[in-house]
Amino acid sequence: MRWLFLLLITWLFQPFPLWAKGIQVVLSESDGAYEEVSRAFLAGLGAGREVTVRKLSDLQPEQAKTLSSGEDLIVPVGTRAARFFAENHVGHADVLALLVPKSTIDRSGLPDSHGKGHFSFVYIDQPLERSLSLVRVLLPRAQRIGVVLSRFSGISPDVLIQEAEQRGFSVSLSRVAEAEEVGHAVRRVLGSSDALLLVPDTVVVSNASLHSILLASYRQRVPVVGFSPGLVKSGAIAAVFSSPEQIGKEGSVMAKRWLATGVLPESRAASQFSVDLNVHVARSLGLALPSERDVEKEIEAHR
């Protein structure tokens, strides 16, 4: 019996659960950002894990179906890979999609008729309260925030107003149905805003509209707060965002939990974030901004 007992002990103390759980990472594209997510994800997981990293271009739908019928955790990185697995999901495999915009997920929500796997996401966008805290940290005396929303933003106006009020802001809100209305809507809110908050919304923020939004805001000396480093480069004074690395890291935390308990945690934004500032535009508007590090610390403190 002793060897049975020994076997039991070894089994209890082995670092991995009995059933072998692997992780299948699939990158939407082969460029830098996706690789960074993958690297940070792997680094966070630590050594000795069973992880396979593939490119979406190397996968056929049948393979996706097979994977979805397996036991491994599927980790698509990017919208294309996430879509691919959603469409070809026939089994019970859990899916942890990284780097996907929240509004895209919300908007496409339909009762599923395919597999019964649990889907969780690490969103690329920031929780609203973080963006609002950013505005509060940069503009301590600001009172009114201007926002233009279309129905594609994925943000509920009521939630926005509530969160804003908690931070001492009133919201000047303008809703649009299509791109042609954006200019007029922006003009409407600029007149009564201490800052313009740009949220991820392809109708409102597009290559076509960005130029005139930034110029009009600048002319009226209203600082713009965006949601990506690209917007800061264009002329927004600041943005809070999670880098591919930070998203990969968050993904690894969730994957480790899945490995330990078999349950995939709820979808969330990355807990780590960065702030980019456009000091030139800010100075030109007469704003003396703290350093990016200090802003990040302040936002943490505001939570």
Partner: peptide, 8 residues
């Protein structure tokens, strides 16, 4: 439990 089954 399919908490978040999504067909995109």
């Amino acid at each position: 439990t399919a908490l978040f089954s999504v067909v995109l």
